[in-house]
């Protein structure tokens, strides 16, 4: 199955969760997973739902890092 994270294709299996995919993505991107948020369909997915969020083929996610400067 393929999903899109920030418009880039990511291959995952039916055993993967959003949580596990984001862990791999964060490690590969050199960012702390605690500092990121993720959205699908223009809606932020609460962190508490990452572990149970069902991945579907071709789902598209926006992942971004928290910004705190000012």
């Amino acid at each position: 199955m393929q999903i899109l994270i920030n418009q880039r294709p990511i291959h995952c299996t039916s055993h993967d969760t959003l949580d596990s995919v984001l862990n791999v993505f964060a490690q590969g991107s050199g960012v702390d997973i605690n500092d990121i948020a993720v959205a699908a369909d223009n809606t932020v997915i609460p962190r508490s739902q990452w572990a149970t969020y069902a991945l579907t083929a071709n789902a598209s996610f926006s992942v971004f890092v928290a910004v705190a400067g000012g």
Binding site: V44, P46, A66
Partner: peptide, 28 residues
């Protein structure tokens, strides 16, 4: 509706501020 913590449920951040990461003025 969610609050700020629903968006970012973190209490601190190692990076993420202008002092550690830099910022282009117009972004602020």
């Amino acid at each position: 509706h969610g609050c700020y913590r629903c968006l970012y449920p973190i209490d601190s951040q190692r990076a993420g501020n202008c002092q550690s990461e830099g910022v282009l003025g117009p972004m602020v």
